[in-house]
Nucleic acid binder design. Structure first.
Length: 150
DNA sequence: GCCAACGTTGGC
DNA sequence: GCCAACGTTGGC
């Protein structure tokens, strides 16, 4: 899951009550579907920093709730307000995420691009702009290794 | 700041 | 239902 560290960083998540926050503001159908259809409580997720001097993976999170409607879509004062969404039929969904641990070493995009095992990783594909993408078990293990875990 | 890539919108 | 125009993302 991607976030711009200036807007919301791994440390910001850790500072939340019990290190748990909600992943609001997803306004792309594919990303929403990954959350709504494929995420289950306990699933592990990497926290990816985008649109910053050194993009890359900072830490590990855990899905901490079932998907539920993103309340910001009904909030006229929110940047994420969506006038086309109805309360009876919310368009946008989110999950809670909990900080698990920061990776001992930051895994930069540059490093990942230099790692042949990650050649197929969806996040790294040319033109990919999805803020949420699935990852394979093998790729997960590779990133953990690059991050200095075991 | 540029630009490639691609999702979304809206006219027809 | 097509597709041009537009907007956004995100790496560089």
């Amino acid at each position: 899951m991607k976030s711009e560290p200036d807007a919301y960083s791994y440390e910001d998540l850790e500072r939340e009550k019990r290190g748990q926050g909600h992943w609001e503001g997803i306004r792309n159908f594919q990303s929403r579907n990954f959350m709504k259809n494929d995420m289950r409580v306990g699933d592990l997720v990497f926290f990816y920093y985008s649109s910053c001097p050194e993009p890359g993976i900072a830490g590990i999170m855990e899905v901490a709730s079932e998907p539920y409607p993103d309340h910001t879509q009904f909030d006229q004062k929110s940047d994420y307000y969506d006038p086309t969404s109805r309360e009876e039929k919310p368009k946008w969904w989110m999950v809670d995420v909990k900080a698990v641990e920061k990776l001992p070493n930051y895994v930069s995009l540059k490093t990942m691009r230099e790692t042949s095992e990650l050649a197929e990783m969806i996040t790294l594909r040319k033109g990919n702009r999805l803020s949420i993408t699935p990852i394979t078990k093998a790729e997960w293990g590779t990133v953990l290794r690059l991050g200095g875990k075991r």
